[in-house]
Amino acid sequence: MKKHVMGIDFGSTTAKAVVLDMQGNIVAWSVAHMGAVSDAAVHQAVDDVLAQAGLEQKDIGRCVSTGYGRRMLDIADKNFTEITCHARGAVAMVPEARLVIDIGGQDSKTISVDANGLVAQFAMNDRCAAGTGKFLEVLARAMEIELDEMGDIAMGAKQELKISSMCATFAETEVISLRAEGNSKEDVLGAVHQAIATRTLGLVNRVGKKGPVVMTGGVARNKAAVHYIEKALGMPVILPKTPQIAGALGAALIGLDDYKAELAESGESLDEDHDVDAQMAFDKSCVSGCKGDPVAAAQTAPAATSKLKSMLGNLQKHF
């Protein structure tokens, strides 16, 4: 039996990889930026994550891919969409989450997650790059600033301006026009992030506004985007420590389910955890003992304690 699984998010602008152990703990993760759906980036992310974990590809029991390039990866055993994987990854990172906002390089999605920790409803942009990382990238170019600087500069906005077009190309014209009228970079960038927030609010309402809200994807690292989205929602947005890897983590967790199910079918025991059913139930629920109410679930200490005891027991046997 192999002792690790891998998730790869082959995104439109970055490639992410995560390695998990059989308990679902993150052993290593990596993010590589190499351009649009880049083979080099995905190889770099995979090589890096394997090197960090001290593993080789042959040590990986199951590899699941997601993202735009999910079908292009020979090393992946299965692939799932970003929607399914981000939902799974986000609830693993923030168990109480019931709404996931994922803004990536070329698309933005809102995903409501149901009581089983599965996707209940989703909405995504499908006609243009409105409200996505690409939108920010185009406008950063128009403003002659680096993408990474955008959020900090936008936080300095003093007055409210408006960008009415959601088309990145038309918005670029508006941005140039606002600058020509003498508006500061800060104020114009504030309007750019406000436009993203408005678009996101529209997507949120398509699936139903409810909390707790967690944000994943690269744009979650932009503090102005988060600020304006929180303002538009009128709700706090929870940020995982590593929002960019939510998709890869979700893919890896799905791979872990799949690998364990296969091992259970073949009758092979798990070294670290003999209680396969309990482990599977644990992994499939958003939090231990979750019955659809995360607040109530947080109080179900016996389930978590029992799991911990089981793991400790196995550890003792191991030694």
Binding site: A120, Q121, A123, D126, R206
Partner: peptide, 21 residues
């Protein structure tokens, strides 16, 4: 979503809707 619900407990009643944004 449909496939994963095949094996899920029947507590889920909401429908899936992937709307055009």
């Amino acid at each position: 979503l449909v496939k994963r619900r095949r094996g899920a407990a029947p507590v889920v009643t909401s429908a899936a809707q992937g709307e055009v944004a």
